[in-house]
């Protein structure tokens, strides 16, 4: 028996999404991930970009924004996540900034041993590292975290 299609759930928060040129600001909720995906896709659609490359960028942005919302801003709706997309024929660069307290990138470890494989979280950075050509994590105590990811369009 086919179940009724519930369709996507709309964000319920009474807060604004800010969009200006290549920049977007969202409140710290994963409810806004589909909006971020639409924004990134709109910025890339004019490029002659392969579908596979577009998917790599879309997955990576969703990972970085998820980290910014959950780990950076700790789902605090009063804090913003900023996304900046710079696209040229040769590369796509996306910068995601949160307003958290920063972290030590060396403390992030994704374990692939059999005992850790069934953990439900902790694979985001591993996936981004694999899909993108360059990943830079810039942060300091009290400064929030800024992550820059680059995809070369060769």
């Amino acid at each position: 028996m086919t179940q009724p299609d519930k369709g996507p759930v709309r964000p319920r928060h009474n807060v604004k999404i800010v969009r200006k040129n290549n920049r977007m600001e969202i409140p710290s909720s994963l409810d806004y991930l589909p909006k971020v995906d639409q924004f990134v896709e709109s910025k890339l659609k004019k490029l002659r970009i392969k579908k596979d490359q577009l998917v790599d960028i879309a997955i990576s942005v969703s990972e970085i924004v998820t980290n910014a919302v959950m780990h950076g801003n700790k789902n605090d709706l009063g804090k913003k996540v900023k996304i900046n997309v710079e696209a040229s024929p040769s590369q796509v660069e996306v910068i995601v900034e949160d307003e958290g307290t920063g972290f030590d990138p060396s403390s992030v470890e994704c374990r692939l041993d059999p005992e850790s494989l069934l953990k439900e979280a902790g694979r985001g950075i591993l996936i981004v590292d694999s899909l993108m050509d360059k990943v830079e994590i810039l942060c300091g105590p009290g400064k929030g975290t800024k992550v820059k990811i680059v995809k070369l369009l060769r």
Partner: peptide
């Protein structure tokens, strides 16, 4: 479609 967390993930 796309499975990316947020409301989709909950469903």
């Amino acid at each position: 479609g796309k499975i990316m967390g947020g409301p989709d993930a909950t469903v």
